[in-house]
Amino acid sequence: MKISVTVNGKRYERDVEPRTLLAYFLRESLGLTGTHVGCDTSSCGVCVVVLDGEKAVKSCTMLAVMADGHEIMTIEGLVQGGVLHPLQQGFWDQHGLQCGYCTPGMMMTSWVLLKQNPNPSEAEIREGLSGNLCRCTGYQNIVKAVEQAAAAMQSQPVETVA
């Protein structure tokens, strides 16, 4: 089936089997391997991407055909004009990653979280990220990373790219 999906601002038309999962479409049809896969049960969240600028979704629990006509943002779309997004800066500064496997999904979930709640408390961040597993960091520095990003985004609103 032919689908047309806008990913990180770029429109792609591809032919896919209906059973193709969005995560594999991104990784294998589009070569965007920053989105990972870690389980088969919608548990781990390493595959999270942003759908239509408003929903964090587990892309291994969504069919690629469901994204037809929609916009997807992946980790590769977070850098704008060569400048790190405050979330990327936060994860780096606060040692919010170790093996890096959960990191893209964590940042995508955080991106939506901060869009909905620009100034979250520690408890709200912990709640908001509880659909994403991390096996390395114990989450504490991830929380700090999101706090740093929230503060940075409040003081210097990121310009929306037209």
């Binding site: 999270v48 929903k55 629990t61 969504m62 979930t109 709640e127 908001g128 659909g131």
Partner: peptide
């Protein structure tokens, strides 16, 4: 609504 599955699953 706050305790169904997890916060990402709840978005879909």
């Amino acid at each position: 609504s706050a305790v169904v599955a997890d916060p990402v699953v709840r978005q879909m």
